[in-house]
Design a protein around this nucleic acid. Structure first.
Length: 789
RNA sequence: GGGCUCGUAGUCCAGUGGUUAAGACGCCGCCUUCACACGGCGGAGACCCGAGGUUCGACUCCUCGCGGGCCCACCA
């Protein structure tokens, strides 16, 4: 074969891996298990380059562990119960979720996924991810709904979930509660109005952009160190227009330089308002109701839309002379990304997971994990320290895992589903028993669970696909690989859930990958700066893509440059050609010398000694998750030691050496190439598999290089000054090449070389190799000199 | 505003309390019987973001800046 056709080969090799079940988890094996809590990618389109980058990085580790002899449990799931999938379906099908019943919409989504998923998952296969794709879950399927609902029931049993009235983000236009991901920042024009509040007959001026919230005002705040208002502490302020009185209080959350430095607090104004309500146990007043209109307490403004009320109230404030100043401003507000409407906080009944009391324990759980890189733990800690609320898990969406809950119409009692009937859809199904009060008339819970509530169960989602007797040995898992921006969501929630359910951490090690940037920014569809990995694979091969991904350390973001991928492609070509040279000289199995010769040539010994160093360094690097170091060790050795020097040194013997010399050379070439292939197999699984299949399969036990053992050091007699001797040889070769280049001579030009006697003595045993590689007619003693003939 | 992180040749990145600061891409020059021109060899190219400090000595440790990024918070 003259050249390597990666397009043909990679397709063929993927099929080979699938057919031979190379990556199958062996449930019967006695080998030690290494299990991975694989991130389930969100189904919202195609695999993007960031996916390719981080999944390749976790795959390096997994492939290494597999070669190290572990029984690998590497499942694959897709996260498709969330809003992104819902949105994708709506977009692709041109429909709107709210026009369907939940059951209908779920059916549409499920069918859609059934069609789209194989192509979606194929992208992961195409970049050589070595998951056992038969261990598969989809976070919306029955299996996952059952586990997610079980989780809810279990937490309920443990007293960890509760339902209560709480402010929720609400879109008055769409009339639905929304989650944080549905919010968007938008710069809007607004008016800052300065209003007069009266305190003990004195006027104080308060600025606000929301005069329509005046009827919900419950207090006014200033900063404790603000001397202007210090005297007012504990007094009552009279709210303009509405004429009721609220206390003047101090709190550090006020910024002295904003507005007039004194602010009104309305229970559902914004986040801070709600914090104050909670902190000082202030009254709860609702100015805006769910339909987006003014509520009862707005008096004459009741029933008006928000903007209408704002205009009317502003007008009336002016009339009464209590509006002293009006200034136009621009500020960022949260809007509903679908309709652009400003988000309100509205009181409604929501389910929560109670966990604020566990902050100390959460920090301990984090300490018990082994973080790679270690600084990523700070993000976890920092998030916990800043936690202010219990986990709100209800979402007013359609496509998601329903709460396994009904409410008794007669006595309002919460009725839970029975574990045996999971998964349930309360809208469609009925409780197994009557309510305690005897009634059988139930109201279903319409909300669905936060998608993180389900994805925080990924270890169980995967493990429970296995036979019961296996499950215990798979949990906790060995490794959680993921990206850093979701430490506070996915990782945190998984750790919490696992500890609440099972009183232990879900995994022991965590590896955090960075992401791909373009011009310094994270690649994202919304920024329009995406590179499609599919196109990269098509043009340069999956090996090249992975080779590039291996050049960045864990946790480091990397700037995308197409040129870097070229280096990977060159590596593939180079190793193919190096193998071609070797096997040009080894025509058949008879020529293969797999046993180490009794009397080894000095140059071979020196070379293998150097290779041993690489094997050791590479292994150590992998053991501490430093795959990029492992890769550069092997890559450097292959290119600069093996190809640039050793192959040239050994040519004399392979072309014109004695039988013994030749056999010795071929042994070293044959066995060192295998070691190099193995060292590179985690990174470039395709070309290494191809060469293994072509040249090594017959003599090796395993049917794939990826099942073959990780290379062991060669058993040779190593001496202290081996490295010095080898480096000295290479240094001289390099100096001769330099001289030839400067003289514009061919690299093969014949020369007479002069070197110091001392140097010559040091190179005892390898002078003949030196002579041939530089094509010297003679090597003299004296000051270093290169003469052309 | 808070936390974390990064800042090394035109570009992407290695790296260590004392090195001739590594490699790759790009650039320039030379080299074609004998694995590879999808190549080889050689070369040019870096006051290691800035200012202080610790030290006999810092690109490497500390402090403060400046700049990029991510997450969180804020958005009266």
């Amino acid at each position: 074969m003259d050249s390597y056709d990666f397009k043909e080969a990679e397709k063929r090799i993927i099929k080979f891996w699938e057919r031979e079940k190379i990556y199958k988890f062996d449930a019967k094996s006695k080998k030690k298990i290494y299990s991975i809590d694989t991130p389930p990618p969100t189904v919202s389109g195609k695999m993007h380059i960031g996916h390719a980058f981080s999944y390749a990085q976790q795959d390096f580790i997994v492939r290494y562990k597999r070669m190290k002899g572990f029984n690998i449990f590497y499942p694959f799931g897709t996260d498709d119960n969330g809003l992104p999938t819902e949105r994708l379906v709506e977009k692709t099908k041109g429909i709107r979720a709210k026009d369907f019943s939940r059951e209908e919409f779920i059916k549409i989504c499920t069918n859609f996924l059934k069609e789209e998923l194989p192509a979606f998952i194929q992208d992961w296969k195409n970049i050589g991810i070595s998951s056992d794709f038969d261990i598969y879950y989809s976070t919306i399927n029955e299996h996952c709904r059952r586990i997610s609902q079980w989780s809810f029931l279990d937490l309920h049993k443990k007293g960890r979930v509760y339902r209560k009235d709480a402010p929720a983000m609400w879109c008055p236009e769409c009339q639905t509660g929304i989650s944080q991901v549905e919010c968007q920042d938008k710069i809007l024009k607004s008016k800052f109005v300065h209003l007069v509040f009266r305190v003990d007959g004195k006027d104080i001026i308060i600025a606000t952009t929301r005069p329509e919230l005046l009827p919900a005002c419950v207090a006014v705040f200033y900063h404790p160190s603000d001397k202007r208002y210090k005297a007012l502490k504990g007094r009552m302020a009279e709210v303009p227009l509405f004429k009721f009185k609220v206390p003047v209080m101090e709190d550090e959350r006020v910024s002295m330089d904003k507005g007039t430095g004194i602010v009104m607090c309305c229970t559902f104004g914004d986040q801070t308002d709600m914090e104050w309500q909670k902190a000082y146990n202030l009254a709860i007043k609702e100015a805006i109701s769910k339909n987006g209109r003014m509520a009862e307490i707005a008096g004459q403004y009741k029933g008006m839309r928000i903007k209408e009320a704002r205009a009317n109230i502003t007008e009336d404030l002016k009339k009464q002379g209590v509006l002293v100043k009006e200034e136009g401003i621009e500020h960022a507000v949260n809007v509903h990304e679908r309709c652009g409407t400003e988000i309100e906080f509205v009181k409604s009944k929501q389910w929560f997971v109670r966990y604020l009391d566990l902050k100390e324990k959460m920090l301990e759980w984090g300490n018990e994990l082994k973080w790679h890189p270690s600084h990523m733990k700070h993000r976890y800690d920092n998030w916990i320290r800043g936690l202010q609320w219990d986990w709100l898990i209800s979402r007013q969406r359609y496509f998601g895992v329903p709460f396994p809950v009904w409410y008794c119409k007669k006595c309002n009692e919460v009725v839970l589903a029975d574990e045996t009937q999971l998964p349930v859809d309360p809208v469609k199904d009925k409780p197994k028993k009557k309510c305690k009060c005897g009634s059988a008339d139930f109201e279903p819970e319409n909300d669905v669970l936060d998608t993180w509530f389900t994805s925080s169960m990924t270890p169980q989602l995967a493990i429970q696909l296995m036979p019961k007797n296996m499950q215990e040995s798979l949990f906790p898992m060995s490794l959680r690989p993921q990206a850093h921006e979701i430490i506070t969501f996915w990782l945190f929630n998984t750790v919490v859930k696992s500890n609440l359910h099972y009183s232990k951490n879900p995994f022991s090690d965590v590896i955090i990958s960075g992401f791909v940037t373009l011009h310094g920014e994270k690649m994202a569809k919304s920024k329009g700066n995406v590179i499609e990995p599919q196109a990269v694979v098509e043009k340069y091969s999956a090996d090249a893509l992975r080779f590039w991904a291996a050049s960045s350390k864990l946790g480091e973001d990397m700037e995308y440059r197409e040129n870097e991928i070229v280096a990977g492609k060159k590596f593939v070509t180079k190793i193919f050609n190096a193998a071609r040279f070797i096997f040009m000289n080894i025509k058949n199995d008879k020529d293969k010398k797999t046993r180490q010769p009794k009397k080894m040539e000095e140059i071979d010994r020196l070379f293998l000694s150097r290779l041993n160093e690489v094997i050791e360094n590479s292994t150590n690097a992998f053991d501490s998750y430093e795959y990029s170091k492992a890769k550069s060790e092997a890559d450097y050795f292959f290119w600069h030691v093996f190809c640039d020097n050793y192959l040239e040194l050994v040519k004399r013997r392979t072309y014109s050496g004695t039988k013994e010399e030749k056999e010795n050379a071929l042994y070293t070439l044959h066995s060192s190439l295998l070691a190099i292939l193995k060292l590179m197999a985690p990174f470039t699984p395709f070309i290494t598999e191809e060469l293994y299949q072509q040249h090594y399969k017959n003599q090796e036990k395993e049917k794939s290089i990826h099942l073959a053992g990780w290379p062991e050091k060669f058993r040779i007699a190593e001496k202290k000054d081996d490295a010095d001797k080898f480096n000295l040889l290479i240094e001289i070769i390099s100096k001769v090449r330099q001289a030839k280049s400067e003289a514009n001579k061919s690299i093969k030009a014949e020369i007479i070389l002069t070197i110091e006697k001392e140097t010559k003595d040091k190179l005892k045993g390898i002078m003949q190799d030196l002579t041939s590689v530089i094509n010297a007619k003679e090597i003299k003693e004296g000051e270093f000199k290169v003469e052309f003939i």
